[in-house]
């Protein structure tokens, strides 16, 4: 967008905006860099490190070596990617289908369907009733138990409906007059126009699957199925045991005298964040202005 006259007032505004955002960046990124620094420091130095430092003390890759050598980390990574990718595809497809239908204002029964969906937002019966259902469905120790959970997230569904409703009705009617059926309208008009919204819920679903540890932990007894979050959690919990003060636990403190727990935890946190960091810029690509106007013509 070209600016004809950038007044000095506008420049001051710009500086204000940028410095505010810059401050935000600093306070959000600093703790993460601190974790990175701790994970890269020698264990004997970690107890002495404060929460402010972002420079490793006595550089050491022990923690990262452990993370990469742990037999379950790679399978965990593969499981995580599998669950996240398959889950997200199903999520986005079925959420989009349902959202498109429910965004039609004249759809008979729309109101009832909305309430049907809304009830699921406020009533979260909790993990125990969920477990009994998953057990009855025979999905314990099956990837489907976690892939299908939140297949259509009511929250994202309603958000997507809201976005679909913003699409000018004339556009849709014009294509319908040309004889396009409901699926074609969705594919040709609605989805391309709602790209930023779709990208957003894709990211939301992806991150939901990526971060979820509770359900895989409860539903998968087979450790080979564990996604990264559960593996790494287990990994840290195991190491934690002695410090958590349990005599019976002390033995599992494998290598405790070599590795500082804080350091290991820090490494684990960074390890789980890193893959998502690569996805984000890809998602941001879909955030382009002008999708709507392009289609109107």
């Amino acid at each position: 967008m070209l600016r004809k006259n950038t007044s000095s007032f506008e420049r001051v505004e710009q500086i204000l905006i940028l410095s505010t955002l810059f401050l935000l960046v600093v306070i959000t990124v600093q703790p993460i860099l601190n974790l990175l620094a701790i994970s890269l420091s020698d264990s004997s130095k970690v107890p002495l490190m404060s929460g402010l430092t972002i420079i490793p003390e006595k550089l050491s890759f022990d923690v990262w070596a452990i993370l990469f050598q742990h037999p379950r980390v790679l399978t965990g990574l593969a499981n995580s990617v599998f669950i996240a990718v398959v889950g997200t595809i199903l999520n986005v497809v079925f959420t989009a289908l349902m959202a498109w239908a429910l965004s039609r204002p004249k759809l008979p029964g729309r109101r009832i369907l909305f309430i049907f969906v809304l009830i699921t937002i406020v009533f979260e019966p909790g993990i125990i009733p969920d477990f009994f259902v998953v057990k009855k469905l025979g999905l314990i120790d099956s990837y489907w138990s976690v892939i299908l959970y939140k297949m259509v997230n009511a929250w994202y569904l309603i958000i997507l409906i809201r976005f679909f409703e913003e699409i000018p009705n004339e556009l849709i009617e014009a294509v319908e007059l040309d004889g396009a059926n409901a699926f074609q309208v969705l594919w040709l008009i609605v989805l391309p126009l709602a790209r930023p919204a779709l990208a957003t819920i894709t990211l939301f679903y992806l991150v939901y699957h990526w971060n979820d540890f509770l359900r895989p932990m409860i539903y998968f007894n087979d450790q080979d199925m564990w996604p990264l979050q559960v593996v790494l959690r287990q990994f840290v919990v195991e190491g934690d045991k002695a410090a958590m003060v349990g005599i019976e636990a002390m033995g599992n403190y494998d290598g405790a005298s070599q590795i500082n727990m804080r350091s290991l935890k820090a490494g684990m946190i960074i390890f789980t964040i890193a893959p998502v960091l690569f996805i984000y810029p890809l998602i941001l690509k879909f955030f382009t202005k002008g999708t709507m106007s392009g289609a109107v013509k």
Partner: peptide, 11 residues
């Protein structure tokens, strides 16, 4: 929604 939300609500 019936399988994963309403059945648990029943449970």
């Amino acid at each position: 929604f019936i399988l994963f939300h309403y059945l648990p609500i029943y449970e």
